[in-house]
Design a protein around this nucleic acid. Structure first.
Length: 154
DNA sequence: GCCAACGTTGGC
DNA sequence: GCCAACGTTGGC
């Protein structure tokens, strides 16, 4: 799950009550579908810092609550307001995420250097989706081999 | 700031 | 449904 740290980085999540917050503001249908249709409590995710001096994976999260409508779509004062969304027919959804651990940054450069991650979606040319799937083998490789977490546990 | 890649919009 | 134009993303 990608975010720009200057906007909302891992330090922001760390400062939330319970280190937990809705992943609001996603306005892309594919990314929305991943949250709404596939992500379930207990699932894990990487917190990826994008559009910043040091892009890469900054920590581990878990899904704390299944997707519900993103309240910012109804807020006319929000930059994420969507005039076509109604409470009867919401368009945008967010899961709650909870920080499990900040990790030493696994940089984009390091990720790209791993043959085992050749198919990691976020590394695909032109990948712009803010939420992309990670295969179990990719998750294990990154947590165990690149982060040095035995069993992938934080 | 540049530029490639992508998603969305809107006219037809 | 097509497709050009446009806006956004994100690494560099």
């Amino acid at each position: 799950m990608k975010s720009e740290p200057s906007c909302y980085g891992i330090e922001h999540l760390a400062a939330e009550a319970g280190q937990q917050a809705p992943w609001w503001g996603v306005r892309n249908y594919q990314a929305r579908n991943f949250m709404r249709d596939q992500m379930r409590p207990g699932d894990r995710a990487f917190f990826y810092h994008s559009s910043c001096p040091a892009p890469g994976i900054a920590g581990l999260m878990e899904v704390a609550a299944k997707a519900i409508p993103d309240e910012t779509q109804f807020d006319a004062a929000s930059p994420f307001f969507d005039p076509k969304a109604t409470s009867e027919s919401p368009r945008w959804f967010s899961v709650d995420v909870r920080l499990l651990a900040k990790t030493p940054l696994v940089s984009l450069k390091v990720l790209r250097a791993q043959p085992e991650l050749a198919n990691l979606r976020i590394l695909a040319p032109g990948s712009r989706l803010s939420i992309t799937p990670v295969d179990p083998a990719e998750w294990r490789f990154i947590t165990e081999r690149l982060m040095g977490l035995p069993g992938g546990q934080p």
